[in-house]
Design a protein around this nucleic acid. Sequence first.
DNA 1: TAGAATCCCGACCTATTTAGTCAAGTATCG
DNA 2: CGATACTTGACTAAATAGGTCGGGATTCTA
Lengths: 153, 153
Amino acid sequence: MKLSQRGEYALRALLVLGMNHGSGVVRIRDIAQQQNIPRRFLEQILNDLKSAGFVLSKRGVAGGYRLQRAPGEISLADIIRHLEGPLAPVGCVSVNYYQRCSCPDEGKCAIRSVMQEVRDAIVGVLEGVSVAHLCDRVCDLQGPLENPLDYII
Amino acid sequence: MKLSQRGEYALRALLVLGMNHGSGVVRIRDIAQQQNIPRRFLEQILNDLKSAGFVLSKRGVAGGYRLQRAPGEISLADIIRHLEGPLAPVGCVSVNYYQRCSCPDEGKCAIRSVMQEVRDAIVGVLEGVSVAHLCDRVCDLQGPLENPLDYII
DNA sequence: TAGAATCCCGACCTATTTAGTCAAGTATCG
DNA sequence: CGATACTTGACTAAATAGGTCGGGATTCTA
């Protein structure tokens, strides 16, 4: 479950949108600058997140992006699954992207049984964390600041 | 931590060697046939495992491979780390392959703190399972068979 | 209603990784 | 000696990663 650069950028962007949820849209350019992400690349990523239903966009002069669903309704597992495919280390233990492997009998494959545990461990963490949780962590980690804009994501 | 084909082949090969530990060497060809792994590719992999100190080889007519250390001393974490690099989903939470990321302050990065948990979850499973454990699982999963050679790995 | 700001879309590019293949060489046993 | 195995290094095709780019479509505002 190596997270690609693309995936990390997506998480960071969604976290920015989460922190700004309720206060209108955020421009690509601002996210790119704040998070030091190549702007064109981020466009591509946000577009992808849009067609996947994670974010909404508004065009034109005062345009930008915002979360489509409430931050609490978006789990990291969902996001990463969409961007990177299976969370499981091997296809034969993936629930959402199952792919049979070449074992003669999956039910009796020792390696598979370990990978099953790995998958469960990964999913256990990522299903349990939403964008809202991420936002909470930002506040917890940085302590009480005066200005919300001071938060470093 | 997506396991590559190469990585999966390596685990399967080591499991075969684990099951045959103590009874001499096993030929590449036999492993390849039994596990349905391309023979040439497996050669490459075993060679790699050899220079990493996981296995020993014997050349010539009655040649083949065997584990270098006891099966109980080889954890899946070690194997996978050697073959695939970091177990952590991002470099900035990897203990063995740490790499700084572009966050302004890692200690206060919310995404990092989640990835830390993911890493710990993965490592927790893989450090706890050795080749010997894998062999045990093979037996557990397949029930008591008459002939050890009947075990399907 | 023009023009600036912003997102939208698809094509394109380069480097790296993945999954192998292959030929020729070296050691070992009988 | 000769058959059998491992050894070594080069090679290749396809996929993926990480971007870049040009131009089009909307929307706001003066």
